[in-house]
Design a protein around this nucleic acid. Structure first.
Ligand SMILES: [Zn+2]
Ligand SMILES: [Zn+2]
Ligand SMILES: [Zn+2]
Ligand SMILES: [Zn+2]
Lengths: 177, 177
DNA sequence: CATAGAGTGTTACTAAATAACATGTCAAGG
DNA sequence: CCTTGACATGTTATTTAGTAACACTCTATG
């Protein structure tokens, strides 16, 4: 049922940290998810679809309970499993990612591509971007192999400041000076 | 107060996934922590010391509440902050690491060395090893820099099977065959 | 002998995650 | 046409993780 995914180069990157037409950005991700789900015979049901839309509203990571609040307000179930099931589905299908450092979830910015990103988490604006992670993953794999460890999944997450927030921080420390 | 740390090569590596004299291993880590704390003028108080000892009993990661249970049973406080404060201290001083994938803590196997490990987490036996992470970190740094992101901290964690558990899994799937 | 800081303990709460069970929908298969 | 089973959704209830805020005790330092 699952066809080979296109290589990352075939899909335009999302400049999370730059100004961009986000409405279009979200729309595209949703369309991609819909197409993939249809092709794979999966059901992108109302809760699941709405959950993805909620995540897609921004490039922030959202906690399951934050998502749940939104779903509940819109007439879906109001108990934790409702949110967790929808989020787990999205993560399994690669429409969203789990950000372990934050115990939170973010919509994937490159759904449908074969990608193993490094997550860049800005502590200023809470945005989460996906940087190409092939090299970093290879290095992790090599380090593991050296001691006979077989890697199944890896989470590579970096916390710091995005360009805009770093600029703002520099400016304010100038002001103090 | 803080002196330059010795490069990783000067301290023997801990073969977490191999049979080793663990009593000696734990003892060494504790001694190193004591020496460092003394040198830095930090107080390795009874709760903190005992918390480290508990983590050092195995190479597993332990949840804060699991540690707390042990502390409480030994006459220390029985409320969450008791465990969290001791664990936070150990992490800050580099005597332990936080494993975000597991929401848990593990004693550092190379305390006192300048290291930025990749954590290898075995899903079979729950052991956590530290593999050299310089290359992987450089790759993450490079990926981040490419989009103007300034990395402050990174968590690199791989889940999979250690040599022993991978061997056992292979054997049992042979048995089925 | 103040008194300020660090460390430890408490109560009380918020947040994250899962187990277990009841109900509804719908597509085969008889 | 009516089972039957898979899947999705909803619930209640509980466990696990993490923090805020306050009180008490030490131990310097002036
Ligand atoms: Zn966007
Ligand atoms: Zn992605
Ligand atoms: Zn050991
Ligand atoms: Zn370490």
């Amino acid at each position: 049922m699952s066809r080979p995914l296109p290589p990352p180069e075939d899909v335009p990157d999302v400049p999370v940290f730059a100004r961009h037409d986000h409405a279009r950005c979200a729309e595209g991700a949703l369309a991609a998810a819909e197409a993939m789900a249809a092709a794979a015979g999966l059901r992108l049901t109302p809760v699941r679809r709405r959950t993805l839309e909620i995540l897609l509203e921004s490039h922030r990571a959202m906690g399951a309970y934050e998502v749940l609040e939104r779903l509940a307000a819109e007439g879906f179930g109001r108990q934790p499993p409702v949110a967790y099931r929808a989020l787990d589905f999205l993560v399994e299908q690669g429409f969203a990612h789990r950000i372990r450092r934050l115990n939170a979830f973010a919509a994937c910015t490159r759904p449908g591509t074969d990608h193993q990103p490094v997550f860049l988490i800005c502590r200023g604006c809470n945005a989460v971007a996906e940087a190409p992670g092939a090299e970093a993953r290879a290095a992790v794999e090599a380090a593991a192999t050296a001691v006979g460890f077989r890697v199944e999944r890896a989470s590579l997450e970096a916390a710091g400041l995005c360009p805009a927030c770093a600029g703002a921080a520099a400016a304010s420390s100038d002001a103090v000076r």
